[in-house]
Design a binder for these strands. Sequence first.
RNA 1: GAUCCCGUAGCUCAGGGGUAGAGCAUCUGACUUUUAAUCAGAGGGCCGUAGGUUCAAUUCCUACCGGGAUCACCA
Length: 503
Amino acid sequence: MSLQRNDQELRRLEELEELERLGINVFPYSFNKTISNKEIQTNFRDEDPSPFANVSVAGRIMTIRTMGKATFCDIRDESDKIQIYFKQNDLPDFYDKLKLLDIGDIIGVEGFVFRTRMGEITVHAKKVEILCKSLRVLPTPKEEIDEEGNKIVYDAFADVEQRYRKRYLDLIVNHHIRDTFKKRAKIITEMRHYFDSRGWLEVETPILQPLYGGATARPFITHHNALDIDLYLRIADELYLKRLIVGGFEGVYEISKNFRNEGMDRMHNPEFTSMEIYVAYKDYNWMMDMTEDLLITIAKKVNGTEILEYDGKEIKLEKPFRRAKMYDLLLEYTGMNLRNLSRDELYSAAKKLNVEIDEKAGAMKILDEIFSVKVQPNLIQPTFMIDYPVEMSPLAKKHRTEDGIVERFELFIAGFEVANAFSELNDPRDQRQRLEEQALLRAGGDEEAMVVDEDFLYALEVGMPPTAGLGIGIDRLVMLLTGEKSIRDVLFFPQMRPEKSKT
RNA sequence: GAUCCCGUAGCUCAGGGGUAGAGCAUCUGACUUUUAAUCAGAGGGCCGUAGGUUCAAUUCCUACCGGGAUCACCA
């Protein structure tokens, strides 16, 4: 921890000490803020300023303009900016202390609201309190509105690394980014509301798991000292939620973090938020209807429209979403029928399609690769891809009429996966066989294959009703509804490589 | 892991083999309705680190360090 301070920071420390010498508590305990900046900005009327004859505002100083015996500054609170007018005659005790204030300090101001000659709604200060002295220099972007009303930003705080590492600075300086996070909160609230109003129960299941399951991914491993056992941070909560359906709940859902020890890019963060829901007596057809309705409801509540714009493309969330079988989509975009092909036939098909494949890849891996290169980028409008090969989906129920296929869908929007769902496998014999096949893959070196969870199998043997399950990647849904291109822009604190001390 | 790009003042960036540049921020002075305030002045830099080429390197070369993007990995 370096305590080296630059000249500007040293000067701020000196100012702080000077204020303390003058008997001012630079870090007081509270302030009676009576109104938000936004309320003033939206409700002030020149005809009748009386409701604002005595307001107390507070916020962080963003700019200071001193003109001798008068000073203007802009302060920002959570809601908006407002200008403060300090006049020497009106602040005999405080005015000379203004020079000890800096951009970044937090102040509280009592005064009356008026409009300046330049038309700016402003608080004329009668009393000023310092609420916090800032010892670090803020990045200092400047904004200007040109004649066409366009906002021009100078010296933007735009370095993505610094923005992610020091998100608090990003939030202060790039005030608008908070809109994304407000929207994120609203999306989750609306989702909860949708589920709760249908009587489904929000639950919490273990994050520390003795066995990990419910998805194919490498886990994070940790250690419990008292029990002296390794535990895994969950990669999914699926198997626990199904145990609750076995226990007699008919609708359970959980919104929480999963952890996957894999690569990071604009669609992946090692910890991410997912929602999983299980509803008894339903199948994947019902779940598709519900998913459509859920997403359209949320989009309308959050954006006021079911039309999205993402990456320059207009996307309509309109019932019904397209439903297409996996092999039909593959045929559509590759011109090849890939069903019932052997591993080697799939491999040569991939070669023909110029899809690069690892020599050792198995049949499902090849199929997945062809899909993600040739099909997925084209699925811009909402598309349920349905009916996957059984080998790809160890927890999904076999298709009621088609051999070798399971009842599963994934929802693609804007070319990325938003949701994944099955008619849940509830035949314990079939489930055991599939998990044992996974265990074989695992023994063969596939680190992502699932492990056999005997207690889960026990629960299935006790009996789980027919059930439909759905998982939605919340981060990706937020990206879709906010237009953000990187998962890092919808997470306050995305995972970053640790900062190493520079040589 | 591969490829490409970046590293110069507190911030955003320009420059270029010969004393290091701008705007903002900071400091001093002027200014009692300014708003990218303005005006006059000032301070602030191991030009990421190390080595090489050179009379001379912040600049060219190499390596390293730090970071980013794309790809690979990863539903």
